[in-house]
Design a protein around this nucleic acid. Structure first.
Lengths: 203, 203
DNA sequence: GTAGATCCGTAACGATCGTTACAATAAGGG
DNA sequence: CCCTTATTGTAACGATCGTTACGGATCTAC
């Protein structure tokens, strides 16, 4: 059967993920990746394929390990709780690790060379998938009377994720968690209600 | 006094600016820059210095030519109008040019290699300067009774710019202007007021 | 018209990029 | 114990990165 692998594939993937999280797809070199992983280049190629495939694996792992709060949030009873959980969860995740702040979905490849276009599009698709889920959840809330008839689920979803992405930019700039949480509170103060709460006050 | 320049420095700077806008600092190569500018590399070095200095010149020009709506917005009479002008102006700028969407302040260098750290910090500083101006404007509004005593100018400024930065991310992902404008409307839907407008309706 | 200064394009610099031969090493099956 | 198979680290690949010598071209000043 031949020689066996001497490193833990998942641990290496975690180390690689952190580098991509901090430096983005193009900003992370194989020198950075091998140093963080404690593994030489051919081992990375053998285990994961080329850089693009490695990033996609790291991105999948990111969603599994760090974005699990999103599907959890979608199961909460009210649309407002869903939005609050997503926004507070984002503020937390974006500031939890001082050496890789922000969000991989945003940091990964916002702008870059033409060579990075497939990865940039993959991140766009990943964000669009999350937005579609959120929109569907808000449509359900509208049907349940949890959101008013005038509410626009697509706009609400885009708004919530705009705030989340903006916080990711701010976290990458060094914003502290309590500031982001205050931003979330302000964002939620505009939340529409199905009944009589027109005051804009927090529930 | 010697041979004269055969190209228009400002036009070259505009062409360079568009490339940085689309691909970011590290994603834009000299091959890209010279092709867009119609000028060979040594001419760029002679006129602007190295890549970092060239980007800073392009960034200055960006603020002069495209972000002029910010200081204009700050002079509007009410805090709500200031916020609205900044957000609608951002939505417009982020989607106005199909081949370089989003915002240079965000696209330029959100994440990247260590070599890009000075530029990344310069963009952070530029955004922080705009945020400080906005906060001061909101402090003034608070003193004028335009914002309630409970309002937090720093949080409001961070919130407005979080929405703006989030829209920049979304615009770079292909969001259309009308969608961003709906996001802006949602963000403004319950702007705090100093007097009796607690309905959350748009003015 | 000539001298001096400045700019232009070609072509190359060393460094780093992502990627991969290749040989040594270590495991299992006969 | 040998053969096969797979993994390891070294060391290099061609391409591209940002940067710059250098020589020919073009201007002003005298």
């Amino acid at each position: 059967m031949g020689r066996r692998r001497t490193f833990d594939v998942e641990k290496v993937l975690d180390a690689v993920l952190c580098v991509f999280w901090r430096k983005g797809y193009e900003g992370a070199s194989y020198a950075d990746l091998t140093e963080a992983a404690g593994v030489e280049r051919p081992a990375l190629y053998s285990a994961f394929g080329n850089k693009e495939a490695l990033f996609r694996r790291a991105l999948d792992r990111y969603h599994e390990r760090y974005m699990a709060f999103i599907p959890e949030a979608l199961q909460l009873p009210t649309a407002r709780e869903v939005a609050a959980q997503i926004l507070y969860g984002s503020a937390d995740l974006n500031t939890r690790y001082p050496d890789h702040t922000g969000c991989l979905n945003v940091n990964g490849a916002l702008a870059g060379s033409d060579e990075a276009e497939p990865i940039r599009q993959a991140l766009i698709d990943a964000r669009a998938a999350g937005e579609a889920q959120l929109r569907e959840r808000f449509e359900r809330a509208k049907g349940e009377g949890d959101l008013p008839e005038t509410a626009k689920p697509d706009v609400l979803a885009a708004f919530v994720l705009a705030v989340a992405h903006g916080m990711a930019v701010q976290a990458k700039a060094g914003f502290r968690r309590d500031m982001l949480e205050a931003v979330v509170q302000q964002a939620l103060s505009t939340w529409p209600t199905g009944s009589s709460n027109l005051s804009g006050e927090l529930v």
